[in-house]
Every structure is written in C-alpha cells, then in structure tokens.
C-alpha cells in the first residue's frame, strides 16, 4: 500500500460501505467537497492565467521576427535588441547586489534570528515590500541620479531593483530554511561541524529549491518592473555602452508600458512582443534551474 500523494485510488480506502455511520459519510463527503474546492481554486488561477498567456503569446508571436533580436528600437518601431540587453544587464545587476544580502539575511533570520533583532528585521523587511515601486524610483532619482550625479544609469537602476527584491529574497529564503528539519542541524553539529558548515553546506543545501524559488521570484519581479526604472535607468534607443553611470539604458518593460500608449499598430505589436519576451526569459531561467536542481539530486 502506497501512501504517496500520486496514488489515484487513495479514496478507495474510504469508500462508504453499508452499515457506515453518518459521521463516516460526512467525512467522506467533506473529503470529496474539499478536494473539489481545491481544484476549483486552482482553475480560478489557471483559467485567467491561461487566457492571459494565450493573449500575449498570440499577439506577441505574430510580431516576432529575427529583426527584433538584431536591431535596436527607434523608440516606436524597429527591433528590441537594446531593450533585451538592457533588461538582462539591469536584472542580473540587481541580483549581484540583492542575492548576497537577501540570501545572507535569510540565513541569519532562519538560523540565528529567533530574537528581538530578528523579529524587527523580519517586520521591517515585510514593510519594505509594501513600498510602491514608484516611491523607490523617486527616492533613487533624488539620491542617486541627481544627488550622487550618476544621471540615468545601469547602476542607479540595478540598485533600485535590488532594494525592491531584497525583502522577498530574505523572507522566502528564511521560510524555506526553517522547514529543514532541526534533526539535520543537530546531526551536523554532533559530527563536529562549525556554524558555517551547518548553515551553508547542510541547511542551505537542503533548502536549495526554496532558495532558488526566491531568486526566481526576485528575477521575475525585477524583469517585470517599470515604475522604478523610468526615473533611474531612463531609456535609450541605443545598445548599452558598457558604462555603469552617466548613460541611460533601455529595458523591455518600458517598451510594454510606453509603446502600448502609442497611436500606431506597429508599436502595439512590439509591446506584445516585449511582453512575450519578458515571460519567455523568466520561463527559460525557471525551467533550467529546475533541470539543474533535479540533476543534482
């Protein structure tokens, strides 16, 4: 008898037999109704999502061509090369800042944060997620773009995105680490392992799928954000020049946000192509990370 969740005929065990009490019938019914509700809940998410993906895929695919990957935009038509490169640079740049802080912070909160300091950090991290992205953008605009004189730049954009995703990284990392059974930590300590080994090589390794989920979620958020970048990264019709400051850079969400507002069919098509690309980029990363994780275990 398998108790694996995949077993399709698990309910057989509880199929009502003659002479069953009303309590058993009730429990049986609750079981059926409960799972039906769960399925409906899933459909309530999946159907709108399917509709959304289909709309973007159809409209985006019809606008796809090789030109999109080989030429830069002129602000309304043309290709998306400048925006694709810019989005990658900005998002990966934000991860450079956010992952060490977020994952490190998450490890701290989970392993050593069962105190007042940990509680305070947790609370403030959750508060930070409630910051409207436009406020972060304006904060960065006043402090970095104007205050530090970086002008519109990759650095200002990446740091703004990093501030935005760090609390998600930290909190989701913490939540995944805390699910690693305490017995694993105890066993490692009993073998004479040091803090560093237990935290990084035992607990973090065990919770890697969860941590990767948080990195993906952060990547998704930063690839999909517009508001904080308009005032920090600016926008450029040209390819990124490799400069970290004093040079604006293009990105895909700007294309979605601005081109959809243009009075031209071609611009709308490019906007949908950009939306499709954003989703494909993250989907690819998502699939490959899962593939790597599965191979590892």
């Amino acid at each position: 008898m398998s108790f694996s969740s995949d077993s399709p005929d698990l309910e057989l065990v509880h199929r009502p037999r003659s002479g069953q009490t009303s309590l058993e019938t009730r429990r049986y019914l609750i079981n059926i109704i409960g799972w039906s509700l769960c399925t409906i809940a899933f459909l309530l998410v999946a159907i709108p999502m399917g509709d959304l993906i289909l709309t973007i895929a159809v409209k985006g695919a019809s606008a796809m061509s090789l030109k999109i990957f080989t030429t830069s935009s002129n602000g309304m038509t043309g290709g998306l090369l400048n925006a694709i490169v810019g989005t990658l640079v900005l998002s990966l740049g934000s991860l450079v800042f956010a992952v060490p802080i977020g994952v490190g912070g998450g490890v701290y909160l989970s392993e050593y944060g069962q105190n007042h300091l940990g509680a305070a950090i947790r609370f403030l991290a959750d508060t930070l997620t409630g910051t409207p992205s436009i406020v972060l953008g304006y904060f960065a605009y006043i402090t970095m773009v104007i205050g530090l004189g970086w002008k519109f730049s990759v650095l200002a954009g990446s740091i703004t995105l990093a501030i935005m995703v760090v609390p998600y990284l930290a909190r989701i990392t913490e939540l995944s680490l805390r699910r690693v059974p305490t017995t694993m930590r105890e066993a490692a300590y009993a073998l004479g392992a040091k803090d560093r080994t237990v935290a990084l090589r035992v607990v973090l390794a065990a919770a890697l799928p969860g941590v990767m989920t948080s990195v993906l979620l952060s990547l998704a958020i930063s690839v999909g954000e517009t508001a904080p970048l308009i005032y920090t990264a600016g926008w450029s019709n040209y390819l990124w020049t490799g400069r970290l400051t004093h040079a604006p850079v293009g990105y895909l969400t700007y294309v979605i946000w601005t081109f959809i507002n243009e009075p031209s069919e071609k611009s709308h098509a490019l906007a949908f192509a950009a939306a499709l690309l954003v989703m494909l980029v993250v989907l690819t990363i998502n699939v490959s990370v899962r593939f790597i994780l599965r191979k590892r275990t």
Binding site: N74, G75, M76, I230, W235, N237, P248, T258, N261, P263
Partner: peptide
C-alpha cells in the same frame, strides 16, 4: 513622443555626428 521618434531617423541621417535618444515620461 511619437513625432520625436518619427523625426530622429531622418535627423540623424542629416546630422551624422549627433545621436538622439527619446523617452515618453
């Protein structure tokens, strides 16, 4: 913004030393 984007390519052709990047904000 749309007009500026229409303008930029012919302008850049006429003035090869100058590049213009536009943004609708």
């Amino acid at each position: 913004y749309p007009l500026f984007n229409i303008w930029v390519p012919p302008f850049e052709k006429a003035h090869p030393g100058i590049r213009v990047t536009t943004q609708g904000t």
